[in-house]
Amino acid sequence: MSDYKQQVSRRQFLNYTLTGVGGFMAAGMLASPLRMAIDPVLQPSRSGDLANVGLAEEDITTEPQRVEWKVEQVDGWYESEVTKSAWVFKNDKGEIVALSPVCKHLGCMVSWEGSEKYPNEFFCPCHDGRYYKDGTNVPGTPPPEPLDVFEQKVENGMLFLGKAHPRKGA
């Protein structure tokens, strides 16, 4: 009984071969849609990179200063170098704050103490939009939300900034 070799029947043989070949074909067909489905995960996040803005941490004061730096940007058909800018300062707790200068109303560039009438505020020249120093919009002026805040880190004493993110507020 023990040395009885089990014979593979014709039916079994056909079953095994067909399953095997079918499996290969299915795998081949599934491979490319699967790769496509998970593709975004495999893409290195380029926009998440932080860029050196050429400002040393020790040079950041409580007085907001405007910094500018360049990043490569792909915008549909155009691949170009765009200049980005931010207002950088240290708040009362000594934390670095980097605010986007783009007004949340219609996109003009706001400036620190841009109007003599409103000291200690960011001011938008287009429609007199105002923001407090922490970027919160002054109620009653056109901007509907606070200024965006940049992702930031300090490395080797230099300030690096990334993307600007909106935040909820007044």
Binding site: H105, L106, C108, M109, P125, C126
Partner: peptide, 8 residues
């Protein structure tokens, strides 16, 4: 245009 985008 960049500076005054919201009004120009």
């Amino acid at each position: 245009e960049k500076e005054l985008a919201g009004r120009v």
